[in-house]
Write a protein that binds this DNA or RNA. Structure first.
Length: 604
RNA sequence: GGCCCCGUAGCUCAGGGGAUAGAGCGGCCGCCUCCUAAGCGGCAGGUCGAUGGUUCGAAUCCAUCCGGGGUCACCA
């Protein structure tokens, strides 16, 4: 535990770093700056025409390692605006880049790529940088302290969370951590839908369990929640009220039972989230918006923008419901934002639809000063996306962006069979079941091995398997090997503290296989920024798998070539190689930290 | 019918303007007197759903179509 725990940082530190905007080590960014500087010099000296836009110039790892260590597209991007041959630009740029002490080679290739090789010392220095920076290596000031609100889970407080919620919870939490790492000030938020008719259903269901606790037989009518999880609620109600509520009319007990039951459901949900390692910063209540004027004022504001009107909706196209009837309602003009229909904010009896408090809620988020909003929704909410984006866009006058990530279904497999779920029959797999069976780390990692908009197969047999077929295991194994090296070295009397390792003579890391691993470490800061910009935490999981793969490869090369083993007869060589292993461990720990997965030190 | 997502190797999936499109599984062939072989290396396997378009360049962007999934009035 120790080596990784020392790397764990609290959430606040990321924010501080982001605001300070300190210079993080990012070799790709450094070399891009060099390329841009040289291009500007070429413009100044008249080789290139002045005023070229360099925004599209990129420095990236080439897809094929045979093409060098870094590649820039500068010559191809600038050829047309400069009115020159790509090759001429590339040659001029190459000559200048070769003057930099870090650059060992610059070759023009393909349609005009400039492939760069750096001096080994530049890569070796990166290992030292990782050890010095520790858990901060890869942190970015990309977010510049901008305030981001990530709303996720937001499961109705009417029962336990199930697998679909688990995926949303993991993706939202990892995304929040990723954004924190990238320099944003992040708030994790849960919107509690405690204001609608479903909490009345919950209260009536709980009341039946209360009757049951008092020795009466419950009458769980069609439409009530049959699940066993309400039995303790009934018992708790009895403990509090005895039989006092048995003779009361519904209007007398409903409000009280509703509050009591939703509180208990939320306590259960928080407990389950905690078991998954998710901790929200803010719980916002839908119910609390009623009666405060917030809904009315948000609607007023939209009305002022000409987006609210009284009208009658067209019947739905395709298959019109048989009981369709025209009704005049208060409508939001979401068609002005590309939605295919305007959306009701008030029912025909004048009460609010679900949409109305949600408008107020998003207005509330805007007024709290967030620069960006992110909502994690289940894919069944896809039809809700346009109207909500429309609302945020209108209410914030386009100042605040809203990104909605839709989470696709999770298909559970066990013994090659699909685990059927039915909420009605009460045979759905809860988040709690999942965690009890495979542990939170496996749940989290596996849920992040797919893009959010692709359906995910969760195979109980595979995810508990200890082989490279199981990415969780594979990455953990790499970290365990790193720690195995450190243990052995300590046993041999070496000082393998980060301070000692960062002073190692890293010129011993000259083999192509070693430099390959270092290059992968060099990609980490870049990966973080790409993943953060795209709101794509799954990229971190894939990167860690690749890094682990490179490390396992290097490890095994030691079987054929003694000079590539991490523990050498010579202390100076050992320290250099251990430094590399440790650097790999540092990045794995940082990445797993973002995913919310605990690194293991030893395989058992 | 409208809208959203997906279609890449036998299977599960990455990549989302750039070079000869990648990985794991499955198949075949190799590697432990030596730091964890729970691992590694190699071989075989692809008209990136189709057709047009934009571009110096398209799996990637745009249009249309074909498959698969989701969703669609006073539920939340």
């Amino acid at each position: 535990m120790r080596t990784c725990r020392s790397l764990t940082s609290d959430r606040a530190s990321g924010m501080a770093l982001g605001i300070r905007g300190c210079d993080q080590m990012n070799l790709f960014a450094d070399i891009r700056e060099l390329v841009v500087a040289e291009l500007e010099a070429l413009m100044a000296s008249g080789v290139l025409p002045p005023g070229l836009d360099l925004a599209a110039v990129a420095v990236e790892p080439p897809r094929d390692a045979g093409h060098g260590e870094m590649a820039t597209n500068a010559a191809m991007v600038l050829a047309k605006p400069a009115g020159m041959q790509p090759r001429a630009i590339a040659d001029a740029l190459a000559a200048r880049l070769m003057e930099d002490p870090r650059v060992a080679g610059a070759d023009v290739a393909g349609p005009g790529f400039l492939n760069l090789r750096l001096q080994p010392v530049a890569w070796q220095g990166l290992v030292r940088e990782v050890l010095v920076e520790g858990a901060r290596y890869g942190r970015s000031s990309l977010g510049a302290g901008r305030k981001v609100n990530v709303e996720f889970v937001s499961a109705n407080p009417t029962g336990p969370m199930h697998v679909a919620h688990a995926r949303g919870a993991v993706v939202g939490d990892a995304l929040a951590s990723l954004l924190d790492f990238a320099g944003y000030a992040v708030t994790r938020e849960y919107y509690v839908n405690d204001g609608g008719g479903q909490v009345d259903v919950l209260a009536r269901s709980a009341y039946e369990r209360y009757r049951e606790a008092n020795g009466l037989s419950p009458e769980i009518a069609e439409g009530l929640y049959p699940g066993d999880y309400l039995i303790p609620v009934g018992e708790a109600l009895k403990a509090m009220h005895g039989d006092r509520l048995l003779d009361a009319t519904e209007s007398e007990w409903l409000a009280e039972v509703r509050v009591f039951a939703t509180d208990m459901m939320m306590a259960m949900i928080r407990h389950d989230l905690a078991a998954l390692g998710v901790e929200m910063d803010v719980y916002s209540s839908e119910k609390a918006l009623y009666g405060t004027g917030q809904i009315e004022s948000a609607i007023e504001r939209l009305k002022g923008l000409g987006l609210i009107y009284q009208g009658v909706l067209e019947p739905p196209k395709g298959k019109a419901p048989e009981d369709w009837e025209a009704r005049e309602q208060t409508l939001f003009r979401s068609t002005a934002f590309g939605d295919d229909q305007d959306r009701p904010v008030q029912k025909s009896d004048g009460s609010w639809t679900y949409f109305a408090p949600d408008i107020a809620y998003h207005w509330n988020k805007v007024t709290r000063g967030f620069d960006e909003l992110i909502n994690i929704f289940g894919a069944d909410h896809s039809g809700y996306v346009k109207r909500l984006k429309a609302v945020v866009s209108a209410l914030s006058e386009n100042k605040v962006s809203l990104d909605i990530k839709l989470i696709q279904l999770v298909k559970l497999l066990k013994g090659g069979q699909i685990v059927k779920m039915s909420k009605r029959a009460g045979t759905f797999v809860t988040l709690r079941d999942l965690i009890d069976e495979v542990g939170p780390d496996v749940v989290r990692f596996v849920m992040l091995t797919r893009k959010n908009d692709v359906a995910l197969d969760f195979d109980f047999d595979k995810v508990t398997e200890q082989s490279k077929d199981n990415p969780v295991f594979y990455v953990q194994y790499a970290n365990a090997r790193v720690n195995s090296i450190l243990r052995k070295a300590r046993d041999a009397g070496l000082d393998v503290s980060d301070a000692s390792l960062s002073a190692a003579h890293l010129a011993h890391l000259g083999h192509e296989a070693e430099l390959g691993v270092i290059r992968k470490l060099g990609e980490w800061p870049r990966l973080v920024e790409i993943a953060a910009k795209g709101h794509e935490p799954h990229r971190v999981a894939f990167y860690l798998y690749e890094l682990a793969s490179d490390f396992h490869g290097l490890w095994n090369k030691g079987n054929d070539d003694d000079s590539l083993r991490f523990l050498q007869g010579d202390t100076a060589k050992s320290l250099a190689k251990i430094a590399l292993a440790r650097a790999v461990g540092v990045v794995i720990c940082a990445g797993l930290g973002i995913l919310g997965v605990t690194p293991v030190e030893e395989m058992r």
